[in-house]
Amino acid sequence: MKLVQWVTIIVSVGILTGINYLLEENINPYVIRVVVNCGIGMILAMSLNLVNGCAGQFSLGHAGFMGVGAYTSAAITTVLALSPFFKTDMGVGCAIVIGGLAAALAGYLVGLPSLRLKGDYLAIVTLGFGEIIRIIFLNIEEVGGARGLPGIPPKANFFWVYLWVVITFVALLRLLRSSYGRAILSVRENEIAAESMGINVARYKVVAFVISSFFAGIAGGLFAHFQSFIDPNSFVFNKSVEAVIMVVIGGMGSLSGAILGGIIVTVLPELLRIFEQYRMVIFPLILIVLMLVRPMGLLGHKEIWELFRKKASS
């Protein structure tokens, strides 16, 4: 890794610690809750962006992988409770990473057969798998079944969530800037041409899907350890759609766009609370207007800094 990126990470850890301290001291819990949910939304959107935006494969089952991460990590820190270590900050961190790996494995198992399909068919199959995963959790009594899983140690605070936002962002940015990432992009652009360049198209689709599932699992693990309670209803189809909306609003294929989408889709419904029962009428209306005005999403294929660079030069 370049020095700049190390510095970025170290500086952001410092800043995050500072903000975290201030938040916990002074700000009301509602604001903290929204800000943390924003972060979880950003991770979810960035991860889905890799599949839907960069590899061009339309997946509609992201909530399922988030669920795998959430349930696996929560099971480690509560039901299994292998050692008291898993109640500490570090232990929860490890559990969340294991949750991410479990989601990646689920992504591999789901992706291998379904990525042979394209477009609408892939969307429907991933939707189906997402629901299947949820219903599996619904029927495992050990993790609470329909009653849900309470008492998860609430260790995922602002600091941990945004640390993962930074990690996800840097990891995916580096991936996309590598020849590996260019190969994933070329699959989106033209599968036949990509194949003619010597790219194993099927493999890259699965790789993108697995990496994406990993980060979705991380988002799920953070979600579980922030809410301290999860039930299968936290990972319904709606959640997948929410992730898709984040990606589409931000701009398919744009990482910074996904972050923007994550913020908008989390914060906007909160701001609209002043409209009370009309909230969920006005929110979709705003989305519709946004799509009419900018059909390519807020940033399109570009990253936010590329937009500014272009303005400066022209």
Partner: peptide, 20 residues
């Protein structure tokens, strides 16, 4: 119909050519 990668730059397209 050429099958170029329309959203990538010319340079990135050429890099993909040397992928192997």
């Amino acid at each position: 119909r050429r099958g170029i990668f329309a959203n990538l730059t010319v340079y990135e397209n050429l890099l993909m050519g040397a992928y192997t």
